[in-house]
Design a protein around this nucleic acid. Structure first.
Lengths: 162, 162
DNA sequence: ATATCTCGGATAATAAATATCCGGACTTAC
DNA sequence: GTAAGTCCGGATATTTATTATCCGAGATAT
């Protein structure tokens, strides 16, 4: 069980874009450069975030990506699900209905007990991620990041938007 | 993000073995037959459960697997971690320390904010799985399973232990 | 208007994780 | 003691994820 690398990149990208001036955008190449990740693969995940209407793409010169809605309305779960999908990690294959004890489907009114346990864990996991917004992350970054890093980041962005 | 098939098999196997008489064992072939899953691959996961001291293996004729400890002392999390590993699904690669804003490691006293969020979700997920024991599952199965399925299962086990 | 820039999607190559199989080592029952 | 039965761990195959490349469609600044 492992989350795609894209999840980490995606959350970082969305967090960075929260610092972007309203009417500007950053290209996928710039975003890859800033985070030090492969541009081609990041581009793929950015498309997913765009389809999920978390990011908005702007074509042509001075184009790129920007947030499609305010940071306080985007949760970490939104980003994770845009990239990783909404399917639960555990998929019950109903093995209780195979083998010697098997009975016709209608005799199983309730979902498998094991499935229930796994689903419930999945639900609290998602709830936990859904409780944090991108706005929360930017506050945390503002609080925790090395001051010099913030300054350098702001400088980089000024340059990138030139 | 997807859990291995072995997780589902493993939980089912452990649950079934909770019904086994104290001093007997079931071979991996029998367990595979009962659940209708590939024998060779199930065997591999059984080894993992054995290493984790959830199951106990008995070699030679009349050998096989049985529980290493009482069902009430084994949680679903134990089984999941035995098969899937204990590493969190999200692994922070510290991309905040790459790119233009990068600073020397010592300037980052706290873990990355994104990592904290993901870890926290991972923690509640594991806590949720850790709150359910195999004993809970056998009760649930006894309550929910089609009565005829329980009878047939008991009959199968009698035969398998012949 | 047009040349330039950007995303979007398709394709292909590579790496990694997962699933499957097989032969050897060990234990037990007789 | 011995033969049958079982697990164990490594080797193999298959699938999935990651990375790279390319070209077309659309948008924009000049």
């Amino acid at each position: 069980m492992k989350l795609s690398d894209g999840v980490e990149w995606g959350v970082h990208v969305v967090t960075l874009l929260a610092y972007l001036p309203e009417d500007r955008a950053l290209t996928s190449a710039r975003l890859a450069e800033y985070h030090g990740v492969p541009a081609a693969y990041l581009a793929k995940h950015l498309q997913a975030l765009s389809r999920a209407e978390i990011l908005e793409s702007v074509q042509g010169p001075r184009g790129g990506y920007r947030l499609a809605r305010p940071p306080a309305t985007v949760t970490v779960l939104d980003v994770v699900e845009a990239i990783e999908g909404t399917e639960p990690a555990f998929r019950c294959t109903e093995i209780r209905r195979r083998g010697p004890g098997a009975r016709p489907a209608r005799e199983y009114p309730l979902p498998c007990a094991i499935d229930r346990v796994m689903r419930s864990a999945d639900t609290v996991w998602r709830a936990s991620l859904g409780a944090v917004t991108i706005a929360d992350l930017t506050s945390a970054v503002g609080r925790d990041a090395p001051p010099k890093s913030l300054v350098a980041g702001a400088e980089w962005m000024r340059e990138a938007l030139r």
